[in-house]
Amino acid sequence: MNNRIDVETAREVEEFLFDEAALLDDGHFDEWLALFAPDIRYFVPVRTTRSARERDKEFSGTAELAHFDDDYEGLKTRIRRLATGFAWAEDPPSRTRHFVSNIRLRALENDEFEVTSNTLVYRSRLERQVDMFSGKRVDRLRRSGGGGKFEIAARTVYLDHTLILTNSISIFF
């Protein structure tokens, strides 16, 4: 951990990420959405299997195809869908467990932090469907409003999968 960041801040960031994960796992999607800044970019690039020589081309860029590239409205649409009563891929809902670990912080300007973490998402669905998603998350957290609370200003999730081994990504990372 970067030693310019005090223990209390580190603890606060960790708690924020754990609380966020709990909102997802408990199905409180509106509260989860409220953690994001209005200018959020929620980006999950596509990964391809490349030779070591072309390793820098593994992840799709911001003008290429992505699993997610949502602004606030995009995330809101996805969450509204869940409440329509017709969102068959999430009704009955997936049972998820978000594990967040290996948290590293770096202070940015303007009271923002870059937070890198590992994420492992376990999903159980209907009778016997089980999926695992593994990835690295890079978040930009911002102190909002002066209340000292964080909001997520940007999130990029680098999945460890090229071929996604499930029928849909109807959950969030």
């Binding site: 999950v44 003008a63 290429e64 195809l65 992505a66 699993h67 997610f68 590239d69 949502d70 995009g74 649409t77 996805r78 869908r81 969102a87 068959w88 891929a89 999430e90 209907l126 469907q129 996604i164 029928n167 849909s168 990504i169 109807s170």
Partner: peptide, 27 residues
């Protein structure tokens, strides 16, 4: 750019239209 942004949200791995097709076929 609009095709990339909007259609990715509708179709593909996380597409809000696509998801429900998969649900039907799997069952």
């Amino acid at each position: 750019a609009a095709y990339r942004d909007r259609i990715t949200r509708m179709f593909g791995t996380s597409g809000i239209f696509e998801q429900d097709d998969g649900e039907n076929w799997v069952e």
